[in-house]
Computed example of a mutant assay.
Amino acid sequence: MPVSLAVRIEHWPIAGSFTISRGSVTEVVTVVAELTDGVHRGRGECRPYARYGETPEGVQAEIEALASDIAGGLDRAALQSRLHAGAARNALDCAFWDLEAKRAETTVAALIGLPEPAPLVTAYTLSLGAPDAMAEAARAASSRPLLKVKLGGGDGRDPARIAAVRDGAPNAELIVDANEGWTGAALGQNLAACAAARVTLVEQPLPADDDAALETIERPIAVCADESAHDRASLRKLVGRYDAINIKLDKTGGLTEALALAGAAREAGLTIMVGCMLASSLAMAPAALLAQGAAIVDLDGPLLLARDREHGLVYEGSLMRPPTPDLWG
């Protein structure tokens, strides 16, 4: 049966605000692609990201441009070479997976040949702020087993911030995300402060186009590539600079490439982290399948929203239940 395409932009308010080194947001704008053959429906959600030159309107147009090709038989395999890695391909790739599962009356896990997904412990993110404010946020979240701490303030106070978070949450495992916000001059001091606070891992301390210093500096804790890592084409430059890789479907361009990247990264000796952009449960659902077996899971996007979509993921504290077919997969 021929497949038709619908694309829409959605707005999701954040509970309060969310701050990283690049600024603050109070709303998340996502793009949803929907494929239907008249009987079955498949959906995928992406978060266009300005850091990568994406806009919701541009991503929507990029997806809509393929409507006639999809009606003419373009499938998920052919999609991989039609669109570059990024948000647009992610939404369509995940919609194709969902539609394939619905048509086959099975699950995406079964289609791939994986065990059905199990519940996962996800990180919970603390926004960048003043040390006192971050300590208060850490105390409020101190019962969660894994906290992700946004740093990269650029004001020299990151050592104080991570020490304050550790004081506020003495028993939680901590990971840090600097979002490219550190400089080479401050790298050693900031990594030492993180090591002193018993941080497990630091994501993307330096800008993606200026991270060569990681090859020569002593790394007291694991360093994870985020903005430096997109798809398999980016993998070669990571070995020797990074210990781990944060795989996000909006960067890889969907679950298909993400699965391939995870396999290649493991072969290269890199630890796997699965992360997300801020988005609803529809964007998290395919990533939850990828995250099975990952060393670190960071899929708390819906927890940071003021509301989630119908049939959204169920979170019991930091324990994330697998998606139901009503949502995806």
Rank of each mutant, 00 (worst) to 15 (best):
T122K: 07
D98N: 05
R76Y: 07
I63H: 02
Q80A: 12
R89W: 01
L99H: 03
D69L: 11
L74M: 13
T106E: 14
T107L: 14
E57G: 14
A71C: 02
G58S: 15
F96E: 09
G73V: 04
D93Q: 05
T106C: 14
L114I: 01
V121N: 02
L120T: 09
P119C: 12
E54S: 09
A118S: 15
G86L: 03
L92R: 06
L120Y: 01
A87V: 00
E105V: 14
T107N: 02
L92T: 00
A109F: 10
E54A: 01
P119Q: 10
G73F: 03
A95C: 12
G58F: 07
P56N: 14
T106K: 06
A88R: 00
T122A: 08
L92M: 07
A77C: 07
G73L: 04
P115H: 12
A104L: 08
A95T: 01
L74K: 05
A101F: 02
E62M: 08
I70L: 05
A104W: 08
T106N: 13
E100Q: 14
S68L: 08
I63R: 06
R76M: 11
A101N: 06
D98Q: 07
A50M: 04
A78S: 14
I70Q: 02
V59S: 04
A104K: 09
A50N: 08
I63T: 08
S68P: 03
R89L: 01
L111R: 05
A77M: 05
P119R: 03
L111E: 06
E105D: 15
H84P: 03
I63S: 07
S68V: 13
A123W: 11
L66W: 09
S81W: 08
P119H: 06
K102W: 11
I70M: 03
E62K: 08
A118P: 00
A110H: 01
Y52S: 04
P115R: 04
D69Q: 15
V121Q: 12
A67R: 11
D93G: 06
Q80Y: 12
G86C: 06
I70Y: 09
L74G: 09
L114H: 11
